[in-house]
């Protein structure tokens, strides 16, 4: 049975401004996909071990050494908007 998803809430969490029509469409599709995906819940996973790196790698670090940064012009050239060395955006209120 399709799973009922509060798509508007999920879209808000994911910062996606979707029209009501699109929300309806995704609600339907997600319901079907999640119904299929929920088959994982039928597996008895009590014996599952914690996952790590497939080759068992641990403790990968780098030394505390300064490496060259990017040139600021190159960085700000990519920016949608910039001024005085800053990235500029609409007010970040929340």
């Amino acid at each position: 049975m399709p799973i009922d998803v509060d798509v508007a809430h999920v879209a808000n969490l994911a910062r996606l401004a979707l029209s009501p029509d699109l929300l309806d469409r995704y609600r339907e599709e997600l319901g079907v996909i999640l119904d299929h995906a929920s088959r994982v819940q039928e597996v008895d996973t009590s014996a599952a071990l914690p996952l790590g790196h497939p080759l068992g790698q641990t403790n990968v670090f780098r030394a505390d050494e300064v490496r060259p940064s990017l040139h600021r012009d190159e960085v700000l050239e990519m920016a949608p908007e910039s001024r005085d060395g800053f990235f500029v955006t609409s007010p970040a209120l929340d």
């Binding site: 001024r83 005085d84 800053f86 990235f87 500029v88 955006t89 609409s90 007010p91 209120l93």
Partner: peptide, 10 residues
């Protein structure tokens, strides 16, 4: 913050 016109980010 609530009346800002824009936000500059560093």
């Amino acid at each position: 913050i609530h009346s800002a016109a824009e936000t500059l980010v560093d």
